[in-house]
Computed example of a mutant assay.
Amino acid sequence: MALTLDHPVLSSLLPVVLLIGIGFLAGRLKLVRGEAVRDLSNLVFLVLVQALLFRSMATAQLDKLDLRSVALYYIVAGVMFFVLLFIQGLNSRSAVVALAAIFSNTLMIGVPLVQLAYGPAGLLNLFTLISMHALVLLTLATIVIELLVAREKEASGEAGRRHIAATVAQAVKNAILHPVPLPIIAGFLYSLTGIGLHPIVERPLELLGSAFGPVALVLVGVTLSRTAIGPHVKGALMISGLKTILHPALMALAGWALGLSGLPLAVMVVAAALPVGANVFLFSQRYHKAEELVTASVAISTAMAVVTVSVVMWLLPRGA
Rank of each mutant, 00 (worst) to 15 (best):
Y74D: 11
T193P: 05
P214Q: 10
A257W: 09
P204T: 13
A141S: 04
A273V: 08
A303Y: 15
I145M: 01
R161L: 07
A228K: 15
A169N: 01
H288I: 02
L3Y: 09
F81I: 06
A254Q: 00
P275H: 05
L65M: 07
M80D: 10
R318N: 06
M80I: 14
A249S: 06
K153L: 05
V96C: 06
P214S: 10
G89I: 02
L5W: 01
L46P: 02
A249K: 07
A71P: 10
V311C: 09
A290T: 07
L258H: 04
A117Q: 07
A211R: 12
S11E: 01
N279T: 10
T227V: 07
I185V: 10
A252I: 02
A155L: 04
A271D: 04
I145H: 02
G89W: 01
P112S: 10
L189Y: 12
A186H: 13
S310N: 02
G262Q: 08
T59V: 15
S156K: 14
L85N: 11
P183N: 14
L52Q: 04
L258V: 15
P204L: 11
A71S: 13
I20F: 08
I184Y: 14
G196P: 10
V16P: 00
V168W: 04
Y73H: 09
G78W: 03
R286S: 13
G221H: 01
L192E: 06
T193I: 15
K234Q: 12
F24G: 05
S69I: 13
L237W: 15
P120V: 09
L90V: 09
L177M: 07
A273N: 06
E292C: 13
N125G: 06
G27T: 03
K30M: 12
V269Q: 03
N42E: 03
A134F: 10
R33T: 01
T167F: 13
K173D: 03
L65A: 08
R38S: 14
A320N: 11
D6E: 02
G21E: 12
I20K: 03
